[in-house]
Write a protein that binds this DNA or RNA. Sequence first.
DNA 1: AAGAGACGCAACCGCAAGCTG
DNA 2: TCAGCTTGCGGTTGCGTCTCT
Length: 327
Amino acid sequence: MGRQPCCDKVGLKKGPWTIEEDKKLINFILTNGHCCWRALPKLSGLLRCGKSCRLRWINYLRPDLKRGLLSEYEEQMVIDLHAQLGNRWSKIASHLPGRTDNEIKNHWNTHIKKKLRKMGIDPLTHKPLSEQEASQQAQGSKQSLVPHDEKNPKKDQEDQQTKDKQEQLQLEQDLDKNKTSISSDGFCIDEVPLLNPHEILMDISSAHHHTNDDNVNINISNFTSSSSSSTSSSCISSLLPGDEFSKFLDEMEILDLKWLSTDDSPGENIGKDGKFNNNVDTMNLWDINDLSSLDLFMNNHDDDFVGNGDGCSRMVLDQDSWTFDLL
DNA sequence: AAGAGACGCAACCGCAAGCTG
DNA sequence: TCAGCTTGCGGTTGCGTCTCT
């Protein structure tokens, strides 16, 4: 008996997502969360399989995604992590907030591999290429440089699993040894400077200043500039000019969040006791570049975070699902 | 200017792990 | 323990765009 298809593919749409489909998916997840990807298409009225919806959301529509090319720092981190973890893209991605495994995998295959080869480093083993290998690479040889037991793939797999476990153990020990702190979301706080709350506010404040509109503080320039590297991207923001993109968000009726005041002295939002004051302003969820910061922000300070009483002042947010909780 | 090949990235596919009854 | 189901992962593909000749 053959394998069951992941979903009934009859009548299901494939290929690039349209703006309408994106709208439906975003709207549905914003209001309902994603309890079950398989059921989501039916519930949201999408003619897609659940897998496709999940992928679209995770790789493209999630509000905490960073767009654009990886920075030098991120690239180096990917190389280092790949040396330790191999092609475990999701694990690597978990160390890079706002980046997806797919994005990192693509970046690795299109940029980093070539870069390492140019530098005379084998991207598979992270060891210097021998002259012969280097010339093979130069000739575009596609042969794997890692010896695999092709006659016994099972043994190869078992070896790999043992190796994986050892690597994982080693990695954990290394991280421990280096006193590198990994936060719960996989963020390496020794290497990446943590933002203080007032610094987060600074960022939001600057976003606020991009527009003079007190109600809709969508930082269009953030969207368009960050995705400009990919002209083929079907990103909503790159498909639409700034004003239409703004209109698109309006049409989607995406809830605005009440957020801390973004007045000229953002530091003043933090009281002497370290608590946030209740001077609340409005911003769109998509202004937040790094949801992990938001997560930390909301969860850690939930008790201290008091809205102005007439709007959305509180939000429930976790790794797997998140919804707005209008009070 | 136009065609061909290279490139980059979103999306798909199949497998495996994890969960549940 | 096992079967069925869902989700997550990594490899691969398809296609739009870019660059070179």
